[in-house]
Design a protein around this nucleic acid. Structure first.
Lengths: 202, 202, 202, 202
DNA sequence: GATGAATGAGTCTTCATTCAT
DNA sequence: AATGAATGAAGACTCATTCAT
């Protein structure tokens, strides 16, 4: 009965992944031992290794699974037609990250910080992340194009650069909220709104 | 050997710190062994330990020394009177980070990413970072107030939120440039300039 | 391997403890490295550490296990009714220590000397030893009381002081036989007998 | 001027030895590092090594110097003519050890326990101790002979065995007073006196 | 399939000793 | 002669991974 078996396998995988997330958040990627995860998952070492070939594979899965879930949510926001104005888009994206956090008892932002550090020494992870953030930025570039077409941005505005700015803002929100812990999505929206409201001339 | 001169001590410390930076960048904080650093520094294990009491102390020093050097540069930019317009300020701050990088053969941005991850499990490091980024943001808040006073921002603009937005942009630049590697400081300036040039209305 | 049986666990523990005893006797407590014990036990470092959490724990177990085994034997001698005369009691107690020695290929006396030295810097060990020797002496005090009641000692004899003398004799036997190596239990019995046979007056 | 130099050398030696005693007592022989002693002595590492060739040499000196000082005191007691009765001799010898203790701020008994443990792995130390305790026992044997000659002991008493008993009592006093800490020299005298006062028959 | 005991290379750190200054 | 910085071998301990049961 492969059906039940498959479901079970998926459930076990999720169980391990959640244990891993919990440990990683508390102790970091490398200070977490496989034994920590084994104990947190309630399974045996052998069982964990039958789902993930190595600690590295588990780290990869822990980070990219989060990324995958986030991708779908981001897509929803980016596909809105017409796109929300910039300050609203930034607010929504930041809220996405912050709310994603709230769910499931683990903090996506913390996992992200760990993943970025790890990506520097793990090529596979780095490439996966480049794919994700590259696609994200491409979506933002398209949105920026639409803003320009709608007249929200001047005709000579450069969508790729606007996308870089928006992406930086969202990534920076993650860092800032983990390190300083006092930044709300609406703060960012307000800040960008204020900047855009000025005409830039004294 | 009789008592070593203060200069020599400082030089040795720097020598070890540079070896550590090089290793950390290549392999990450925890995948780097003390032996890696010992070999890279050209000293002996005992010598390294006479300058840094533990690996943790070395990590702390490696991260906070960078932070300290950066602090001074940031201060220079923030103290400019009158302050440059927002898009120019963002460009300069990003350039600072990127250029700091070029010097001394180590990449401040990579160290930053590693440091952020580490700060989650190292309280001392976390507090030091909070101090640094908190002060940074306070400086930005003041700048935003001046923008408002000069009429660059509307009278009802909120300097703290503008500061959060700017800080996020700079931190996000670090992440984005490490992960995607194709973002220049002027891209961010351009992107923000384009956003501010729009009146925000379609 | 699935869960190991309690017997096997106990056997492994004993195997490690015996290896430790052998090494400690040859080289002393601190000059023995964990690797020495690991090799002598025929197990791996990890296995040894799964039975004893640290070298200190292993030292504690090595010393107190001996003490525990000795306690039972001592009890047998002290419970004899009526108690043997003093010189015979001393002979028996010394013989116990010396014979305990012969068995199992390790020398209780050497372990004792090492343990006494160690007790000065290991509080837990010191307390355990105080408990053991205190109880031992209490038993001797009771015996001395019976001697007095039987008329072997004068009515005004002080059992606690007699117990201190007897305990000192037995402890001193351990030291003397390890350091000089030419003292037999019956020598002590004879010596005490001779002393008691004199009326103490010239 | 060799005179002054020699005095200085002796003073330095004593200074180091005292530092070593203090450290050894607090931490044991092997848990004391040369650096501990160097710092406690107020000298430099090089200076310490110019007086003692190695840690082992320092340990040897620390233990045997104590032994030597004790030897002279013991001799005084043993040479008394006529010899004091057994219980008085035991009391005096124990008092010697306990008082030696009081002087100079270090505890001979603790050093003794450490030395006995060390003697098991240090041949030179073992031989020195055998010489010392052997001579001590020889002196006791002679005293026992005199007791017999004086009629304090029966004509068929065996002086060597009596000496073994007395030596054991004194050594055991050291152990017992370090481990249990509640034994006074007069307790031992009283205990032996009580035993000798009985005729050994119920 | 599942278990968890066992492995053993690798980690951080210490410390007796030396010797350039 | 004296200093104390430097050495580097050795120590205690960990932990990702395997595989006998």
């Amino acid at each position: 009965m492969p059906r039940i078996s498959d479901e079970r396998r998926a459930a076990r995988r999720a169980q391990i992944l959640e244990a891993a997330w919990a440990c990683f958040q508390k102790q970091g990627l490398h200070a977490t031992s496989m034994d920590d995860i084994v104990r947190a998952s309630g399974l045996s070492a052998g069982a964990v290794y039958s789902y993930f070939a190595s600690k590295e594979a588990l780290i990869f899965a822990a980070v990219t699974t989060s990324l995958g879930a986030l991708r779908d949510l981001v897509a929803t926001v980016l596909e809105a037609t017409p796109p929300p104005p910039p300050e609203e888009l930034v607010r929504r994206l930041a809220a996405l990250v912050a709310e994603f956090t709230a769910r499931e008892g683990y903090d996506l932002r913390r996992i992200a910080l760990l993943g970025w550090a790890e990506a520097q020494r793990n090529e596979q992870l780095r490439e996966t992340m480049q794919g994700f953030y590259g696609a994200f930025r491409l979506g933002l570039t398209e949105t920026a194009g639409r803003w320009r077409d709608e007249g929200r941005l001047p005709p000579d505005a450069a969508p790729p650069e606007v996308a870089k700015l928006i992406l930086a803002t969202v990534l920076g929100f993650v860092v800032q909220s983990v390190l300083l812990g006092d930044v709300r999505p609406e703060d960012l929206g307000r800040g960008l709104g204020d900047l855009m409201a000025g005409d830039g001339r004294p």
